[in-house]
């Protein structure tokens, strides 16, 4: 068990570089600041939105995080289920579907869901789930497969049940790889949720789409800047969490 519950961590890496992007994001969210900064792009007028920027950012973040929670609830049990012994065919099927999900363009999936689910949050949420699942499932499978066989045999020799081995050995050992998948999936979904604005889901894509249709460059830049900062922030923060986990 020493490899799991050791308290002797190595000295931490500096966390400050990862906090640059969240700090920039918060500065940009100071009411009125960003709008005034981009006014030169909108023919001198300060672009305004019906919804305040912090609300758009929060609903964007909320959508991504909600999807990520559901993705974890589905993806991790799925990865565990298909990596049990004697399930090679199911695992291959899961990998093939995940590979297909990586190949098919985001917009195509989102758009294909519209005839079935209508406009708004629902098709976007479906797209976020499908796209979020891909890295989590494939990294989950890869992580669980990479667990050392002798380690598992040793655990069996110690008299651990299958459930104990899963909880105490396999899941902790595969956690870094799984976390990398969670990071990819979250960052990717910030982009997917941006495109979701084209289907009527409220978020940081909304100013981009509105600005493009009104030919208001300032509005486009506001949305694009905030979406980019949100993605970079989440990438940095989740990278920090993964590094912590890797250092244990």
């Amino acid at each position: 068990m020493t490899l799991l519950a050791s308290d002797t961590r190595r000295p931490r890496r500096s966390i400050w570089p990862a906090l640059i992007w969240p700090a920039l994001l918060l500065i940009c969210l100071i009411p009125g600041l960003l709008n005034r900064a981009v006014s030169s792009l909108s023919a001198g007028q300060v672009p305004t939105l019906d919804t305040p920027l912090w609300k758009l950012t929060l609903s964007h973040l909320g959508l991504v995080l909600l999807a990520e929670v559901v993705v974890l609830l589905i993806g991790v049990p799925l990865a565990v289920a298909v990596t049990r012994p004697g399930r090679e065919s199911l695992m291959r099927l899961a990998e093939a579907v995940a590979g297909l999900g990586q190949t098919v363009p985001t917009l195509a999936i989102l758009a294909l869901a519209v005839p079935a689910l209508g406009f708004g949050v629902r098709p976007t949420l479906l797209g976020l789930l499908l796209y979020g699942l891909v890295p989590v499932v494939s990294n989950g499978i890869a992580g669980l497969l990479a667990v050392d066989k002798p380690t598992l045999d040793a655990a069996r020799g110690m008299g651990m049940t299958d459930g104990q081995r899963l909880r105490r050995i396999e899941l902790p050992l595969s956690l870094p790889v799984l976390l990398a998948g969670v990071r990819t999936s979250t960052v990717y979904n910030v982009g997917t949720a941006t495109i979701g604005a084209a289907l009527g889901a409220s978020g940081l894509g909304t100013p981009i789409i509105e600005g493009l249709s009104q030919q208001n460059t300032g509005l486009v830049v506001i949305g694009a800047l905030l979406a980019a900062l949100l993605a970079l922030s989440l990438d940095g923060l989740l990278g920090l969490a993964a590094a912590e986990e890797g250092q244990r």
Partner: peptide, 9 residues
């Protein structure tokens, strides 16, 4: 890392 739509914008 930057979303594609944001980069275009």
């Amino acid at each position: 890392t930057v979303p594609s739509l944001a980069l275009l914008g």
